[in-house]
Amino acid sequence: MRHIISILMENESGALARVANLFTARGYNIESLTVAPTEDQSLSRMTLVTRGSDEIIEQITKQLNKLIDVVKLVDLTEGGHLEREMMLIKLRAERIQREEIKRLVDIFRGKIIDVTDTSYTVELTGAASKLNAFVEAVNEELIIEVVRTGPSGIGRGPKGLGL
């Protein structure tokens, strides 16, 4: 099963390396990992997407919790949650293709943020599955470059992951 684990950790150099190290050393798979500071300068927030059986996910969360730099974590997939990822995708766009791409971008509620005679760069936000759907919907030959941030997530409802 796919899990999104959200981690609050000390904003120390090396904290990211500890997490990455843990995954390689123990052979856990890691689909994506995003990290950035929070409103509290001393903390950073990481969102990690991984896959594994229940036993493996249990070990992953226990091992993460054991890292001294990890302050708190939550497996978002255990409850209601929102997931968003941003993609920048550069597409070959000439003559008739231009109209077609624009229509597709509208359907997916994306934005064209850079235009040349021969290309469009599209910004698209949503759950990873929606971004996948967009990539599948455009003709593969038109894709010049895809850049994705990896998902970030947050729990639904009034409660937050804080200290």
């Binding site: 036993e55 249990e58 070990q59 226990k62 091992q63 919790n65 054991k66």
Partner: peptide
């Protein structure tokens, strides 16, 4: 004392 020792190899 270490939660990660529990159910690591054997349920």
């Amino acid at each position: 004392i270490d939660p990660s020792s529990i159910s690591k190899n054997v349920r």
